[in-house]
Amino acid sequence: MTRKKRLLFLSWRDIHHPKKGGAELFTHEMLKRAVHAGYEIVHFSPMFDGAKEEERIDGVLYKREGSLTTVIHYARKYYRANTFDFVVDQCNTHRFLTKFWVPSNQRVFFIHQLTREIWFYNSKFPVNVIGYLLEPLLLKLNKNDLTMTVSNSTRENLLDLGFQRQKVKVLPEGLDFEPWSKEMFYEKEASPTFVYVGRMVPYKGIDDALKAFIEVKKNLPDAKLWIIGKPDMQYVQTVLGEISNQAHLTIGNANENKDVTLFGFVNEEEKLQYMSRAHALLFPSLREGWGLTISEAAVVGTPSIVYNTYGVKDAVDNGKAGYLVPKKDIKALSQTMLSIIRNPHEYEIKRQQAYDFSKRLHWNHTGNEFINFMRELS
């Protein structure tokens, strides 16, 4: 009987972590399909409050030990006490430095996106400068490793750092639900309505979305902006509130009729409904691995307006499946928002193109590509 191939997958967060995001979803969907294909997989990550030290989820064995700073020690100890065919180091700012303790023929590197300019939005001096300067140096440690990523943008970033073209594999993104048929689309709101879905962090560009919306309101007084996602009330008050107050915009919650509505966290069904009812999703992020929300909006009938930035441009097929505007160009962002209302024929064409491009995404494709990649290594 053929022995199952054993993979050790290292990451800073897992699918049950309270701060899980698209990377953790991608990883779990990929790994559970690999388990069904006959692989034995252990996912190793730090402990967090309320977590179990060990549990099996969809066939994947999740082990947790240590903190963000000590997890490398425990992962190395676990690796040496067990037998694995391959070790996958998932880099999401944090990395496990497997170059120094895993043989080259067992190493696989996995990265969704580089951080680069995000350091200057998420950290203060001198941490931001140190992080910015160290990132390419640390990445070059893995330049000879077999590597997986999720977009051509990130692949090109890696090639620029010296990674070998033939060793870098792009895995396709997936969706967590079946694309809707057109009959399932909700009617668009009577008023021009734009939606932002995501975390309230500076590099995601929610402040730029609000500034562009202010310009739109000067031409379309009945326009609305919906913001969906767990609210950071300090950010709302100090950043969004100040911008809104200067423009005399009103902000309220879901049961108030305001210019800007903060829905907070909503369930998946509600999120898709709001996205389907809006005219466009605003996604002015400075960098992403892909931008899964863009694809989700597309398959419920709503195209996205995005900045021409790494990862994000891949999710709109470089402007063929959505609207691409120059990075940090708020004027271009607002003009595009106006154009989709004023040019309904062009809007319907773009809406169809976004739908056709994104409905091809499925986690089964992701899993199959990962499985094929691993089989090639064997």
Rank of each mutant, 00 (worst) to 15 (best):
A254Q: 12
K218E: 06
L220A: 06
T238R: 09
P221E: 08
A247W: 08
N253V: 04
V216Y: 03
I243E: 01
L249K: 05
I227K: 12
G252L: 06
A223L: 09
H248I: 10
I228Y: 02
G241L: 13
I251G: 11
M233L: 11
Q237F: 08
M233Y: 09
N219Q: 12
P231V: 02
W226G: 00
S244G: 09
Q234M: 10
L240M: 06
A254W: 11
N245M: 05
N253G: 04
L240K: 00
T250G: 14
Y235T: 03
P231M: 00
V239H: 04
N253I: 04
K224W: 11
D222G: 05
K217N: 00
Q234I: 10
H248V: 11
N257G: 01
K224H: 11
E256S: 13
K258R: 15
K230V: 10
T250V: 13
H248R: 12
P231A: 02
H248C: 10
K224T: 15
E256M: 11
L225Y: 15
L240W: 01
K218G: 03
A247Y: 04
K230P: 03
D232N: 14
K258C: 15
G252D: 09
Q234V: 09
E242V: 03
Q237V: 07
E256N: 08
Y235P: 03
T250Q: 14
L240Y: 01
M233K: 11
I228M: 02
Q246W: 06
N255V: 08
T250M: 09
H248D: 13
V239Y: 05
K218C: 03
E256D: 13
L220G: 04
Y235V: 04
S244D: 02
M233V: 07
N219G: 07
T238P: 03
E215R: 10
E256W: 03
K224G: 10
I243G: 01
D222S: 15
I251A: 14
K224C: 07
E256A: 09
E256R: 12
I251K: 12
